[in-house]
Each structure stands twice: as C-alpha cells, then as structure tokens.
Simulated scan of single mutants.
Amino acid sequence: MAERLSHINPPLASRARVVLDINKAERHIRGGMATKEKYEHEHQLRACSRDEK
C-alpha cells in the first residue's frame, strides 16, 4: 500500500508512513494486553465455577 501510494501522492504517503510506523511499534503492546485480558477472564470464570460447587 505504502509503495503504491508514494507514486500516486508522496505527501500523503509520508503521513501514512508515520501512522503505520507508530502502529507497528505499539502492536506488541496491544497483543500483550489482549493476552493478559484473555487469561484474567478465564481465571475469573474458573473462580466463579468453583464458587458454585
């Protein structure tokens, strides 16, 4: 996408590159947070099911 855009509209391509670079730099953080939430949710479900017994 960025390669084609640089030929069509270079100023827009440079602005898009900034956004894409920020997203790439933050991607691993979002993935880690999603994994943490997943396991916290599973932990809560197991705790609730033990309380019902």
Score class of each variant (00 low, 15 high):
K53M: 10
P11R: 01
A16D: 00
L20I: 07
K38S: 08
K36H: 11
G31M: 12
R27C: 10
H7K: 12
L20H: 02
R30M: 07
S14Y: 06
R15F: 08
C48A: 14
L45K: 13
S6Y: 00
H7E: 11
R46L: 15
R27D: 11
P10I: 01
D21N: 09
K24S: 09
A2H: 09
S14C: 04
A25N: 05
R17P: 00
I22M: 09
E37C: 05
V19E: 09
E26D: 10
R50I: 14
E42M: 14
H7M: 04
K53E: 15
I8Y: 02
R46M: 15
V19G: 06
R30F: 00
S49L: 15
R30V: 01
R27I: 03
A25Q: 06
M1G: 12
D51Q: 12
H43D: 06
H28I: 05
A47C: 03
H43S: 13
K24P: 05
S6T: 07
Q44V: 00
V18T: 08
P10A: 03
V19A: 10
S14E: 09
D51L: 08
T35W: 14
H7I: 03
R27E: 13
D21E: 14
M33Y: 00
K36T: 08
H41E: 03
A16Q: 05
R4P: 05
K38D: 08
K36C: 13
S6V: 00
V18K: 04
R50W: 09
A13I: 11
Y39E: 13
C48D: 12
A25Y: 03
H28G: 10
P10W: 01
L12G: 04
G31A: 13
R46V: 14
A13R: 04
S6N: 05
S6Q: 07
H7Y: 09
A25I: 02
P11C: 00
H43T: 12
S49R: 15
A13P: 03
G32A: 05
E26P: 01
Y39F: 15
K53Y: 08
R15Y: 08
G32P: 01
I8N: 04
Y39G: 07
A34E: 08
R30T: 03
M33W: 02
K36F: 13
Y39N: 11
S49Q: 14
L12R: 07
S14G: 02
E42Y: 12
K24W: 09
S14R: 09
P10F: 01
H41Q: 09
E3W: 10
L45P: 02
K38F: 13
E40W: 08
S6G: 05
A16H: 06
G31W: 07
R17L: 01
R4Y: 10
V18W: 07
H28L: 11
R17E: 03
R50H: 10
G32M: 07
K38T: 08
R17Q: 02
H7N: 07
Q44L: 02
R17M: 05
L20E: 04
L5T: 01
V18C: 04
